[in-house]
Nucleic acid binder design. Structure first.
Lengths: 144, 144
DNA sequence: CGCTTGTTTAGAATTATTCTAAATCTTGAC
DNA sequence: GTCAAGATTTAGAATAATTCTAAACAAGCG
């Protein structure tokens, strides 16, 4: 049982990519599918490995290219949590990330639609914001 | 005219490092000084280059070690803004970062002392949070 | 069809970070 | 003070993450 209706999604993908002058290619479709199939904030390397299963000839550079394309047209977000590889996330709703410093798991957490009380100096034009919370997740806190 | 009183600071450094079982060394002092002298969120590489001026024999690995030591004992923060090098910041007051996507400059912005309205699931134990705002800074917005 | 532009590919190159082993320094026990 | 234990530094190698390059392909268009 698939959770998505392919034709509707293809259309969505094409449309979103189109807004930035980008084309829908089988590779971009595949990378997007990988992101949506397991939403565990994979690194580019992990996306590469997963995408290779269905598309063995896909290359490293293409995965980076596809991920960048998806980020650029607003279908995925980059997440920078710590030193090391960038992670990717297809959840485009307003949300932040809880990063467990014990087990490393990343959880999506809800955020208010506007970040209140942040004093942005006048003249500055905010476009997006990222919130990361570091701490211990419920599982790891219990085991302590 | 120096802004700091060295003896007071050395004491502070030693004290903070001590809380984690770390020693004050000339290299750690130097790296800390570099961070405080120009608060432009340098990368480890930039810290290395600046520290080398006063201490030409300092090595790459030592700079990473020192930065990690400072982060561990609460004298500096790591900042992850985008793909690429991690940046470091000696401003330990509660603050977020505004990252100008045009010129790349990073500005500290004030934050409320508690992040309100963030629904952290029960059992999770937050320790710190990072807020990054991406957008266009006042200078770049004017030039457009 | 033939051109232009966008995309993919393998692999090289670059950048960022960590590791390694030897040398050096500090500290505390005697 | 001397010595061992442990922490720290060092240069350079190794690894990891990302970007670049040049050639091949593919799609859209006149």
């Amino acid at each position: 049982m698939k959770l998505r209706s392919p034709s509707h999604d293809d259309q969505h993908l094409t449309e979103r990519l189109g807004t930035t002058g980008l084309r829908l290619t089988p590779q971009r479709q595949q990378v997007y599918d990988v992101l949506r199939q397991k939403r565990d904030h994979p690194t580019a390397e992990e996306v590469f490995i997963r995408a290779k299963k269905a598309m063995p000839e896909i290359s490293h550079a293409t995965v980076y290219n596809c991920l960048d394309a998806l980020v650029k047209c607003g279908l995925a977000r980059q997440v920078q949590l710590e030193r090391g590889a960038t992670r990717f996330c297809p959840n485009m709703t307003e949300h932040g990330h809880f990063h467990c410093s014990v087990c490393g798991t990343i959880y999506d957490v809800e955020l208010p639609h506007e970040l209140p009380c942040v004093a942005i100096p006048s003249g500055f034009e905010p476009q997006s914001y990222d919130v990361t919370i570091h701490g211990t997740c419920a599982d790891c806190a219990r085991k302590k």
